[in-house]
Amino acid sequence: MVESVRQMGALMRKEFLLEWRQRYALNGMLLYIVSAVFVCYLSFNARRGQLTPIVWNTLFWIILLFTAINAIAKSFVQERASRQLYYYTLASPQQIILSKILYNTLLMLVLAFLGFGVYAFVLGNPVGDMPLYLLTLVLGAIGFASSLTLVSGIASKAENPATLMAVMSFPIILPLLLTLLKIAKNALDGLDRSVSWSEIGTVLAIDAIVLTVSWLLFPFLWRS
């Protein structure tokens, strides 16, 4: 157990190093979300606080969804096949998928908080219950990372990864996205927190299902 945690730590460290050495990819993602927010801001041509709460909320999550798909799509494409083979001789596939999911969660957290900061800065911040909204961002980061990592693994094996990634992840992510939107809307309106418990439970349940299925299925995926 201790050994396995240590190996996962090493794998995580490898992901960070890799990202740090190819800083253009990371910077690219950061710039992607900032410019996406800015494009939306200019397209709506809205002064602060002009968007209705529903539009404000939905727009933000759509931006986050597209950023997530783009950011996570590269998690398997980035490294050459021979190098991946080498990792597979060193660690078990379960460790690899878990470390990828953990790493992507951290990446999504950074992107989500940065995106939210910029978004609230240019478009105004009508959120009523800030801690709950931030909790939704955290839940969203975990959920996006865990559902999209396996999909990106599947897409990376196919001929046309970019299109397939989008086509496969939109329907997969929708139940999660709809539930997150609901919690975020509750937080935005500052409703009593007891209203959101059942939705938070649903998000956690979907996360648990997706994580377990990824854990079970990934060993079959990497062998091909």
Binding site: I154, P175, T202, I206, V213, F220
Partner: peptide, 22 residues
């Protein structure tokens, strides 16, 4: 066969909460 089988199982695992819970 292998990769689409992986996706099929994954899709069904998401399909259940989609149809019965949401």
């Amino acid at each position: 066969a292998r990769i689409s089988a992986v996706y099929n199982i994954f899709a069904f695992a998401v399909f259940i909460p989609l149809i019965f819970i949401v």
